[in-house]
Amino acid sequence: MIRLHPYDGSDSLLRSSILSLLSEAFGKEGQPYYELAMEYLYDGEHTFLLSEGDGALLAVALVVDYVDPDKGRWAYLYSFATREDRRGEGLMTGLYKEAIEPRLIERGYRGACLVPATSSLVSFYKGWGFHLLRDAEDAIPITPGQRATDYLIAAYGQPSIDNPLPFRMIKPFVPTVDHYRLVSPLD
């Protein structure tokens, strides 16, 4: 039986399982960044975990608050990963559609945004209703909220240039005619 697993930052076995899954999905060289993310971003409200009945971790999804001062709170979907031997079963799609998006809407988020890890994931996220942002010229910036900014500065240092992220995707939860672009504090 697959179930939502509560996040407990004091559970060292769970922490190790999450780090292992992130390394498998995104590469071992990112381990220092995953550890920083766990320190700054993971908590019970923003972390979504799927596990088997025996507690084995299957998928992890982290939502980071992004804030547009004029348009309200947005969710940045960060570190969505499924264990390699369970990919293709629809676990993350089910987690997103049945648990994450309804909770984000309930919590008052105006929409969600993300940057796929690879260009091949663009069509995957289009299946969730996301679309690519292409025109950043006349767009309203969505800049990271404080939790995300603290983590990104800890991980990468102070920002120097305000450039849009590549392969930006967005999904408004409420009807809008606004134009958006994601702004990275990393560049």
Rank of each mutant, 00 (worst) to 15 (best):
P69S: 13
L4D: 08
E98A: 14
L22E: 14
D11Q: 12
D187G: 10
G157T: 10
W128M: 12
E52M: 12
P141C: 06
I142M: 00
D70H: 13
F173K: 07
C113N: 07
R168D: 08
E35P: 07
M92W: 02
Y33I: 11
I140Y: 01
R110A: 14
R73E: 07
A59H: 11
S184V: 00
D8K: 07
Y7R: 04
I2G: 01
F167L: 15
V63F: 00
L104K: 05
V60S: 08
L19P: 01
R107S: 15
A81H: 06
S123V: 12
L132C: 08
T143H: 04
I105D: 03
I142E: 00
E84W: 14
L19Y: 10
V67E: 14
L186K: 05
G72W: 02
W128A: 07
D11G: 12
P32D: 04
L182A: 01
F26M: 10
T82Q: 02
L132R: 12
S10H: 11
G44T: 07
L186W: 02
K171Q: 13
Y42Q: 00
P172K: 06
H131S: 14
V64L: 04
G30I: 08
G88P: 10
G44M: 03
D85H: 13
A56L: 15
R3M: 09
G55V: 10
A117C: 08
A59S: 15
D43M: 04
Y42L: 14
A155N: 09
K126W: 02
Y156Q: 07
A59E: 10
L36M: 04
K97C: 11
S184I: 02
D85P: 03
I100A: 02
R73W: 03
G44F: 02
M1V: 08
L4E: 07
Y109L: 08
L4S: 07
A155T: 05
A117P: 00
E106K: 13
S51H: 02
L186H: 01
D54K: 13
D11R: 09
P6W: 01
G30W: 09
G53M: 11
Y125G: 05
A117F: 11
R103I: 03
S184F: 00
S12M: 14
L62Y: 01
P166D: 09
D85R: 14
R147S: 15
D8E: 13
L186N: 06
E101T: 07
F26D: 02
A139P: 03
P102I: 06
K97T: 13
H131D: 11
H5V: 03
G44D: 06
V60W: 00
D135R: 09
L165V: 14
I18L: 07
K97D: 09
G111C: 09
R83H: 15
Y34P: 00
Y125C: 08
V60F: 06
D8T: 13
A59F: 03
G88A: 12
G111Y: 03
S160W: 07
D70P: 04
E98V: 05
H46W: 15
R134K: 15
P32N: 12
R168V: 13
Q146T: 15
H179L: 09
F26K: 08
W128Y: 10
M92Y: 03
M169Y: 10
R87M: 13
K171N: 09
H131N: 11
H5Y: 13
V67W: 01
A148I: 02
L14V: 13
E98S: 10
V63C: 05
P32Y: 03
D162T: 12
L95G: 08
M92N: 11
P116A: 10
E35I: 08
V64T: 04
L36W: 05
E84N: 15
